Structure formats: C-alpha cells, structure tokens
Computed example of a mutant assay.
Amino acid sequence: MKNISISDFKVTTAISLKDLPTSIDLEASEKKKAKALNKLREKLSEHQDIMYAHNKYSVLICLQGMDTAGKDSLIREVFKEFNPRGVVVHSFKTPSTLELQHDYLWRHIIALPQRGKYGVFNRTHYENVLVTRVHPSYILSENIPGINSLDDIKEEFWEKRFEQINNFEKQISENGTIILKFYLHLGKEEQRQRLLRRLNKAKHNWKFSPGDLKEREKWEEYQKHYEEAINKTSKAHAPWYVIPSDNKEAARILVAKVILEQMQQLEDIREPELDDKVKQNIELYKEILSQEKN
C-alpha cells in the first residue's frame, strides 16, 4: 500500500477546495485496504481502552461533508471495534423547539464526550456557519436579539460566529478534549453517481429526498462557505483535515490513520498503576480466590 503522511491532509495554511483532490489511489487491492483498516481500528480500540482507564482526555471527532459523502458508513466502519461504552455518536439534524430555546452551541455542548470517551459529531456546530449561510432565513428562527430580518444578518454576524466557535473549541481543548475535524471532500460527479445509486436500488430509496437535488444546485455556494469555515477555524488545537472521499474505503483508512497517529502522540496516556499495597499482595489475592470453593 502507498505510504501516506497524514500531514498531507492537515490544513495549516489557507486552502482552496477546488485545488485539492477528491480521490486518492492507495495502490492497494480491496483485500489489502480491508486488512489495513481492520488493523487500524483494532489499534484504535486498544488505545481507547487505555484512554478510558487513564480518564483524563476525551476525544471529539467532527465530520462534515456534502450529502452522500459517506459520513454514516465511515463512522460504522472506523469505530466498529470500539467497546460500546467508549464511543458515543451524535447526528445533528434540524434544531428542535427545545434546542432553539438556547444558543446555537448549547446542543453541542451537552453532547460533548466524557473523559475517557470518544464523541463523534455527524454534522456539527459548523452547520451554523454552513447551512445557515446558504439559507440565512434559518437564523431568524433562533430569535436572537437584534436580528429581526435578513437585513440584520451582515458579514459581522458571521465573523462573530467564527470567533465564538474558535473560543468554544479552545476552551474544551484546554480542558482535555482532543479535537479532530474532518471534511470529507467529495467530487460533484461522484455525488451525482451516489444519488443515482440511491434511486436505482430499492433498498436505498429511503435515503433519497427531492431536497437533495435542491441542495445540489447550491454546490458552489456550499463549497465557498466550507472553504471559508475551514480556513478560519483550523487551529493547532483543533485542526481540520480535508479527506479525499470519492473512494469510501480510502477515506475510512485516512481518517482512522489520522486519529490513531494523533492519539499516539499523547505519550502521557497510559494505564493507571496499581496501588503499591495492592501490588504487593497480588499473590495473596490469587491464593484466596484459588482456594475459594464453588
């Protein structure tokens, strides 16, 4: 398999999405890719068990991408070896009535992972500078003071949101949450093919909505706002990775590799040691249990 450096996908300077690839050839057979992914997720699972026992860090995985980018299947395949207690997935859809009674970050804050656990956000707080940017009328339902019409939503409004998001991520990072953000970079033609497959296969018809086509018409607008959001919020403590996603198997390997290598850099994560007194009496405890009658 092709040697991959995760730094090739990390956003450290301003990027232009149209200049970045949506596909990558890993130079491996399907069998080899499946084997590579399996090895990565086993290592991730082992590391998460240690992190759970260590109980000082949590991990927030943020996934964004256009419709059909493969977020759901990526979550299923990358995290399938995890102990169920170690990972919690949240899929954020249209805000509920309750959620709209709070600020836009509230529902994300209460879903943050506990120490020792992974939290996966399938669509994230970035929807509030993406979908609402394409459909600014959605902002009016948030009932924000001073925002009474679309005319009140000026450029300064979005700049303030970027600042708030950066501050939010900085705060949770400083308190032990490892943040890794992935944009699944899908080509427009590949999306067309995936939408067609949803229509051509009866068992996948339920995934299709006429609204998918309406949103597809706004492809360029979404790309513009994704690019801006990534450029303004990729920080050392909360980096963005732009993952070529025309090939789902390759995208899963890349995401798993990024997560594993980033977590392995945290050298202080280790299993807690037994209390000296307990350690000294291990043989005694073994003897007690061995002599216990059924």
Rank of each mutant, 00 (worst) to 15 (best):
E155S: 14
W158I: 04
K160I: 08
R161Y: 00
F162I: 04
F162S: 05
F162E: 04
E163A: 12
Q164S: 10
Q164L: 14
N166S: 11
N167L: 13
N167R: 14
N167Q: 15
F168K: 03
E169Q: 09
E169S: 06
K170W: 09
Q171G: 11
I172D: 00
I172K: 06
S173P: 07
S173T: 13
S173Y: 12
E174Y: 12
N175F: 13
G176C: 09
G176D: 12
T177A: 12
T177N: 10
T177W: 08
T177Q: 09
T177H: 10
T177R: 08
I178K: 09
I178W: 02
I179S: 01
I179H: 00
L180K: 07
L180G: 03
L180F: 08
L180Y: 04
K181T: 03
F182N: 00
Y183H: 10
Y183Q: 04
Y183F: 15
L184M: 07
H185L: 04
H185I: 03
L186Y: 01
L186N: 00
G187R: 03
G187D: 02
G187V: 04
K188Y: 06
K188D: 04
K188A: 10
K188V: 07
E189A: 15
E189I: 10
E189F: 13
E190W: 07
E190R: 13
Q191Y: 05
Q193E: 14
Q193N: 15
R194Y: 07
R194N: 07
R194T: 05
L195K: 03
L196D: 13
L196T: 12
R197F: 11
R197H: 15
L199E: 13
N200W: 09
K201W: 03
K203C: 11
K203Y: 13
K203P: 06
K203S: 14
W206L: 02
W206A: 02
W206R: 01
W206G: 00
W206Q: 03
K207M: 01
K207E: 00
F208P: 01
S209T: 10
S209H: 11
P210C: 04
P210H: 05
P210I: 01
G211F: 09
G211M: 14
D212G: 00
L213W: 08
L213E: 08
L213H: 06
L213K: 11
K214M: 14
E215P: 03
E215R: 02
R216I: 05
R216M: 10
R216Y: 08
E217S: 15
E217D: 13
E217N: 14
K218F: 03
K218S: 08
K218C: 07
K218D: 06
W219E: 03
W219A: 02
W219C: 03
E220M: 10
E220N: 12
E221N: 10
E221R: 06
E221Y: 06
E221L: 12
Y222C: 03
Q223G: 07
Q223L: 15
Q223A: 11
Q223P: 08
K224R: 14
K224M: 10
H225P: 05
H225R: 11
Y226D: 01
Y226F: 15
